[in-house]
Design a protein around this nucleic acid. Structure first.
Lengths: 229, 229
DNA sequence: CGGAACGTTGACTGTCATCAATCTCTGTGG
DNA sequence: CCACAGAGATTGATGACAGTCAACGTTCCG
């Protein structure tokens, strides 16, 4: 599949905070993330910005995956390497087209599962657990995991994280302080987080087993999964 | 595409409250909704049930679309007609397989857009707007629309709706009372709703334009779209 | 060194969840 | 057809939690 993208697609870079032009008219265009972190962003009902989904390396997306909200678009949170490709570029290559369809179907299904998980987190977790779940996900996805500890960059600013978790930036700050004082996580500067103990962090997140499974750590046992009180 | 499903799939009925057996082991199996309403349900972190997505006629889903949450499954909210099919049944029919892949890709993308919209609603709308948005969606999808009014069944009980909108059933009841006293909606018995004026209802929902677009009323003008305060 | 963006903290306010009591449907059996 | 039981829905009183506003600290840039 990589060959298809190198043969028919175009490599491109996006700088931090750059917005990829994505109108629904361009739903033919597919992006594949090679490196970096991006977010799907839109203006919520209250005029406030909302971050709706996070895109990691390996993800593929097109505009047909996003609803026609006001101001929807994908924004790079770090410098990113991407591949851009028109679906219609494969019109004359049926076998490649089939392979692409199967690939997209699988990637879209994974994005959908992650969105559903995010709904479950927003709906059923306390603010504190939401923050813990976010850090856990980010550490597993983008961090260096060493035994039971992990270190990762925080590509999102505090208010970005707040907009993603449906919190107030002030409240988020308070929660971070609590997590830090409890020794579960630590921070270095503004944009780097250290997870002292992944297991301890998991104890803060009721549905951690699902997060682990969706981010490549299905085998990791989160022991006291407090899913049933 | 209908021919493919009739040729290779099996028709089945599901009764109200019936749970479709859906373990992640069966991710090969695809369901297509012909009539009725179903929900994707799981146990949230607090042991409380969460309704994560609503499935309408025309939707197609498989277990790979849902994260491995505790107790995930699809539950029929009304009597339903479905088609069940194994993806691998088309292994020896490449052209049908390609058509199926394209169909699934398109359906999955739509489900994803709806899930993202739901995230935006949960995150950025007040409880009252969430309820209004839910009724609007249901009325447009499943109701009879006559001019500016609509009538529809409420296939979900009050606590189901509350679990979907991340509200308390008590709070939901209060909100319904407020909407009724304002004359925006009325109810007949417990499970039937009448929307007096779709335009008036839209005024309660900041992101109504997106809801309209995703549920087949893109042309309907919701005038005072209060997206920017 | 200075300015600006970002982050933290405190006091106050509003909203929503909780609990408990009451009411109203709906289906069942007499 | 009516009475009854039980689930489901409504309503009120109360408290916890998170949002808002304002002030102050920090970090990062030139």
């Amino acid at each position: 599949i990589d060959e298809i993208f190198t043969a028919h697609g175009v490599s491109m870079r996006a700088r931090r905070r750059q917005r990829l032009v994505m109108s629904s008219k361009w739903s033919d265009i597919i992006y594949v993330v090679k490196s970096g972190v991006l977010v799907l962003s839109a203006n919520g009902g209250s005029g406030r910005r909302q971050l709706l989904a996070i895109l990691y390396p390996g993800d593929a997306f097109s505009m047909s995956l996003a609803p026609p909200l006001d101001g929807v678009g994908v924004v790079a949170m770090t410098d990113c390497d991407l591949i851009r490709m028109r679906r219609s570029a494969l019109e004359d290559f049926p076998s490649e087209m089939q392979e692409l369809e199967a690939f997209l179907q699988q990637r879209t299904a994974e994005l959908h599962a992650r969105s559903i998980l995010h709904i479950a987190r927003l709906a059923s977790l306390s603010s504190e657990s939401r923050v813990a779940a976010f850090i856990l996900e980010l550490a597993l996805r983008t961090g260096q995991v060493v035994n039971d500890t992990a270190t990762c960059d925080l590509p999102l600013s505090r208010s970005d994280i707040a907009d993603y978790l449906s919190l107030n930036a002030d409240t988020l700050s308070r929660i971070m302080t609590r997590l830090k004082s409890r020794g579960t996580v630590a921070t270095v500067g503004r944009s780097r987080a250290i997870v002292k103990s992944i297991k301890r962090l998991c104890k803060e997140v009721p549905i951690c087993r699902t997060t682990l499974a969706l981010h490549g750590y299905a085998e990791l046992d989160c022991q006291a999964d407090n899913s049933h009180s």
